[in-house]
Design a protein around this nucleic acid. Structure first.
Lengths: 185, 185
DNA sequence: AAATTATCGCACCGATCGCTGCGTTAGGCT
DNA sequence: AGCCTAACGCAGCGATCGGTGCGATAATTT
């Protein structure tokens, strides 16, 4: 007998159920809060029994955090154009394009409202990506602004417009933030 | 008989009930989502019958929007120090101090999650205040940055840190954003 | 291929939610 | 002071939610 044989089973049907539930959450969050966004509703849309959702995730807040973490990680890759300005401009354009989708925004809003950890789950990955680009530029020998300052001047305005303002955050405008950041340093 | 005698009655008990419900929403939102934040719970905490809340507000989303509009309007006054830099620094310090309260943050998060209009309800007043200060400086004959740019560089980082980051937004740091904005223009 | 067991579906229960008549209280006006 | 009616409290009604046993299914290992 072994010590710990196989504690988890992440293949096949489990993965399929997980994908269906994630998709249902995104679709329901996109339907501007007309749907109550509760576990039976999510399960019904996913074609899955509510019991499964209760057992795997426990609460809507945890489910939303899981969905947000999956959604806001990995779909934007860190570019490598050779210069920090080029990297940042391309990356900001991609992030802005991703945030232009109303469905993505709705998911983000719902996640923020679900708990204190929700907001961080939407942004930590972007934070890490930004730090990676800046540290790479420094390793290359170039001058780069502080990560903290870059977050304030790039992610700050972008996410503010997405959540708090009615003004559109176009990729062109987002790229303009990069030049404003790199100008005075 | 008059045309429209008295369609509303905002005094006395109605005002008292409104204040109690608003207070209950703020307190429940501050109790980090452990409470379900539903109408019977809000009414019970306010010492008010649930029927009243259903009739006056209809849904939790509308109630939250009402509370947020009341809370994020008027508690910060537009200063008048004579210079734009002085006005902005004092104002940003006040706004940052207000946002440092975890209860205020919890209310903001819940409002954002309640509907697409929630985010705007938390920021429109600050937007107007910022525009007022900038237009006053222009009427004074001085040079002032674009309102749009000021929103991006001041409100953007401040609200981003409040919602998406774990980094504290101290009043000193918020005042520093003003000098960074006014430096390059 | 057979065994093992993590995972899912089904039926069901108590609790709570959202909402609606109806009577009562108390602001606002003459 | 007295009337009028907006606003509130009470009782109760479907409907739905969150959660629990128990058997069935299928992913993984031997």
């Amino acid at each position: 007998m072994s010590a710990a044989p196989a504690q988890s089973r992440p293949g096949g049907r489990s993965a399929r159920v997980r994908a269906a539930v994630h998709r249902a959450v995104e679709e329901l969050a996109a339907a501007d809060a007309a749907e109550p966004l509760t576990i039976p509703v999510i399960a019904a849309r996913a074609g899955v029994h509510p019991t499964t959702v209760y057992r795997r995730w426990g609460s809507v807040a945890q489910l939303l955090a899981d969905v947000a973490t999956s959604r806001f990680s990995g779909d934007v890759v860190v570019p490598d154009t050779g210069t920090l300005a080029g990297d940042l401009e391309r990356w900001m354009g991609d992030v802005a394009t991703d945030l232009a989708d109303p469905d993505v925004l709705a998911l983000m809003r719902a996640t923020i409202g679900s708990g204190p950890e929700g907001g961080c789950a939407c942004a930590v990955d972007r934070h890490d990506q930004l730090r990676a680009m800046i540290e790479r530029e420094r390793a290359r020998g170039g001058a780069a602004p502080d990560v903290e300052r870059a977050v304030d001047m790039l992610l700050g305005p972008l996410y503010y417009r997405a959540v708090f303002s009615t003004q559109p955050a176009s990729p062109q405008w987002a790229r303009g933030l990069v030049t404003a950041l790199l100008k005075d340093m």
